[in-house]
Design a binder for these strands. Structure first.
Lengths: 326, 326
DNA sequence: CTGTTAGCGCGTTCAC
DNA sequence: GTGAACGCGCTAACAG
């Protein structure tokens, strides 16, 4: 086999009878260049005819930045909703000519620096915050954007590119629903997994009505203990960290023979498939992942091109799905 | 700010008082080069002292291949288990010096070629099969490995690097359990989402006992219809495509007032958190994701370095988790 | 206006 | 152990 040599801009230039520079100008539509339509077309034709695709590596080497957006996934279990968000994000960024990739795996396995150095991304998104050193290193390396999807609460982002509002809003919506359906004494079912703290804290902080917090493991017997505790406190409505925790609360209540929602109302977060199949079916709160993804994509694009970040319209972002449990 | 110039191998060479070539040979431990220990150490010290990290882009440009392993995610909803697998895979590959990234999003959004051209990966993994054209294009571009996690059944892979066995094994284990607990007439609860077919087919094919197949949407009322049908057929044990479908079957049975497992035994797949919280708790089948990830990682490494693919030891890979529902 | 020349970015590798 | 070319695209400076 005659080693199928890569097609380079030189090939296109040769075929179009112009210089490589011209090819570059035409293909990148470089502003401030005046190239005749005839030449333009010849180049375009040649490129198309040869099936030319520029070498991403060369471009990256030259410009110091690829068109890849790197997302660092958290080390806590990612479920359906996150998967969904990533998919939407990928689609939205693709429309802008950016390639989205996600890197799973904890930062302990591999220093975060190795990851982005291997990719030379245009932007890095992360679900957890960066240390100042990391942030600086990336910026110094020319990474255009550094978004923490959930910055430390209250921290004025270096870029105003953080997105903690929705989390608090989730807690708010949960309590609003419960308070609105006649429950005045509330509990908060906190997740067992310490890695989830970064999400749980802002959600809890968004709750009004000062709920009684208890940790609820994903186990019916252990959940029952928590439920018993809440009962003793006079709590009648529970905001759960997410649907899984909510299902645990439901299972715990059942063990104790407590009727739901009569004896205890429960509201989750995420609307996982199991939520509607539970008995009683689970009332929960969902985020419009498509809208959120669109916003994130816009934020990334803005940052890459040096424009200010857009403001997230949070109005319809988070919705209560009313079912039987609350 | 004095524009923090990147540290290159030239800097290291200068500091160590050697040529750039030598630096390259030392840092890559290039075989067939005779470099004195003294020089070696000087280079190593200089590199460490300067905090030198080679430019991935330049390396990729030169060698035609990055050290990134690209995984193309399917467009069907990815859940916890897949997330888990990806995490383990990432960790395993990191140990081999490879950077793992995943690209979500359907192939309709963006031709698959654009993705890998943007990354120049050492290897590409995919959950679904590639067309022959795609496969060839990648191979021609120097991508070392092209694994379809689930090739078309029966297709003799170009590389023998396909992994369909576990899927069939899942079905096998489910039926074994049900047949072993006294159920002779079985049903298979097929997922509603057509995108899942690629997983569902091999799982179903692995089932013994020729089960009666019915599609079960994730909705209690609709699931009840399917359950009623099975009852009419004399079916007493259901293998579900996954835990969510199994939960739907459970919900359907409850609607009809059918006791589980007395009236109908159900076994799922995945062991999602909701499985143990269901009523009755769900008997299910799990895959050892860590073991699977290790095998995949080994396969990738073998392929990248041109060695033959290892054989997967399937013995303990798939396990039944016995709970109440079957 | 139109388009070209030339050198850069950085690590790798062949030939001496 | 070294010099020098190479992989490929970008872009400032420059000539018709």
């Amino acid at each position: 086999m005659p080693e199928p040599r890569r097609i380079t801009s030189a090939d296109v230039a040769r075929r179009a009878g112009v210089s490589r520079a011209t090819v570059s100008y035409v293909l990148n539509a470089t502003p401030g260049q005046s190239i005749s339509t005839a030449t333009r077309d010849r180049v375009l034709d040649a490129a198309a005819g040869l099936g030319y695709a520029p070498s991403a590596a060369a471009r990256t080497l030259r410009t110091g930045r690829s068109d890849v957006v790197l997302c660092l996934l958290p080390d806590w279990p990612i479920g359906n909703e996150v998967g969904n968000l990533l998919g939407n994000l990928s689609t939205a960024l693709a429309r802008e000519g950016l390639t989205f990739v996600a890197h799973p795996g904890s930062r302990e396995d591999r220093p975060i620096a190795e990851i982005w150095k291997a990719i030379t991304p245009a932007a890095v998104l992360s679900f957890t915050d960066f240390s100042d050193r990391e942030r600086e290193a990336m910026l110094a390396a020319g990474v255009a954007l550094v978004v923490a999807l959930l910055g430390r609460a209250g921290r004025a982002g270096l870029h105003g590119r953080e997105l903690e509002v929705p989390q608090q809003l989730i807690g708010r919506r949960q309590t609003e629903h419960l308070l609105g359906t006649g429950h005045s004494r509330l509990g908060y079912a906190y997740p067992d997994d310490p890695r989830l703290k970064i999400f749980a804290e802002p959600r809890l902080a968004g709750c009004s009505g000062d709920p009684v917090v208890r940790t609820v493991p994903l186990d019916a017997a252990l959940a029952a203990e928590a439920v018993a505790g809440w009962r003793a406190d006079g709590v009648t409505g529970i905001c759960a960290y997410n649907d899984e925790v909510a299902l645990a609360v439901l299972a715990g209540a059942r063990r104790l023979g407590i009727a739901t929602p009569g004896g205890l109302a429960v509201i989750g977060v995420d609307d996982i498939p199991a939520a509607r199949l539970a008995v009683p079916s689970l009332t929960t709160v969902t985020t419009d992942q498509r809208m959120l993804a669109a916003h994130l994509a816009t934020t990334v694009v803005a940052a890459v091109s040096g424009r200010p970040a857009p403001v997230l319209a949070t109005a319809d972002l988070i919705r209560v799905v009313v079912r039987e449990s609350a």
